[in-house]
């Protein structure tokens, strides 16, 4: 069974029902689903559209507009690297090259093992402690160096065992 079919329909339905009467409820619903599943499965679109009285095209249109929402399962750990100017001034471009090599990934890719994913991000609001990266949803790291990144990866791999 693939992960795509694995998700919890009931939990998704609950999120939809919770926001059925929320003004502008689609983003809260998408967030709610991604919070639980890590992504918004294509197969959930119909239920979302029905629940919020929208067309499926509308729901698809919104999901694709926003960089944050993803339609495939994320890696166990997603590395978000800041590509914006303040981080560039502190050699973020070199760091990006190192990270890509270290993980063997390009942006928007997930490793075959499913352990790591790599995404660009445009400013984490940590511009005085540049360069900055974020692991998963809330683990922000500043003053990042190649060495620090390598130990971070080692730590995450260790936890995975």
């Amino acid at each position: 069974m693939t992960a795509q079919q694995d998700w919890d329909r009931q939990a998704v339905q609950k999120v939809i029902e919770h926001h059925q009467h929320t003004p502008g409820g689609l983003l809260p619903v998408l967030h709610g689903i991604q919070d639980i599943l890590g992504y918004v499965p294509d197969e959930a679109v119909e239920a979302i559209a029905d629940g919020l009285n929208l067309s499926r095209a509308e729901v698809h249109g919104v999901i694709s507009f926003y960089h944050y929402f993803r339609t495939s399962p994320p890696a166990k750990h997603t590395v978000h690297v800041c590509r914006a100017e303040a981080c560039q001034s502190m050699k973020a471009n070199d760091l990006v090259v190192h990270i890509k090599n270290r993980l063997g990934l390009d942006f928007h890719e997930v490793s075959e093992s499913g352990m790591f994913g790599l995404e660009p991000i445009y400013c984490l609001g940590n511009c005085s402690c540049a360069p900055a990266i974020m692991i998963d949803r809330d683990e922000i790291h500043g003053r990042m160096t190649e060495d620090k990144f390598d130990s971070l990866v080692a730590r995450l791999q260790g936890e995975g065992k």
Binding site: P23, G24, G25, L26, L27, P28, L30, H31, L52, V62, F65, Y66, H67, Y68, F69, I121, Y122
Partner: peptide, 18 residues
């Protein structure tokens, strides 16, 4: 949801409307 343009106020309002 990670769209720079949604800082522009009318884009923001569209986004807030879902």
């Amino acid at each position: 949801a990670g769209a720079y343009i949604c800082g522009e106020q009318t884009s923001l309002l569209e986004s807030l409307e879902g």
